[in-house]
Amino acid sequence: MSAVLSRALPPERVQIATDHVTEPFWQAARERRLAAPRCADCGHFRLPPTPFCPECQSQKVDWVQLSGRASVFSFSVVRDIPGLDDAVVVAAVVDLPDAPGARLVSNVIDADPDEVRIGMELVVDFSPVSDGWLLPVFRPFTPAVEGKEG
């Protein structure tokens, strides 16, 4: 059976807003890099980016470039998207192994929705959204993908 592969929402449907705290995340994505803020005092990662470290209240952060690897913590398969009759979106909450404690809510793309599992290994990709921004999304991790990335 040829499954309809999952996709991200069309670029024109997704708008993002930034502020001085979150902008480094989006600027990195625009350069096809996945980055997360790590507290410069205690090393705690947090996402979304916020003005204070919830562990030590420091405002100092280091923006760390991550490997782009992730795993599915949980997910939902959404098929009732108005105007996208046959589309399937897999919305996923993902853990980031090199930013422990921080999660992203994103999409698993190019996957058979029936094959997506909690714990599934993913690798980042970038999907265009409105106004020239890129959205970090994830695709199933395979050695072939790894080769391409490397």
């Binding site: 993002i16 989006w26 996402l47 949980s74 939902s76 959205l135």
Partner: peptide, 24 residues
């Protein structure tokens, strides 16, 4: 800025969001 970390994933309503908790 805050919602930009959840809205783009396509979880359009609260039930969509809670489906992820239910799955876990």
């Amino acid at each position: 800025p805050e919602k930009s970390f959840i809205q783009p994933a396509g979880l359009t309503g609260p039930g969509h969001l809670m489906s992820v908790l239910a799955r876990r």
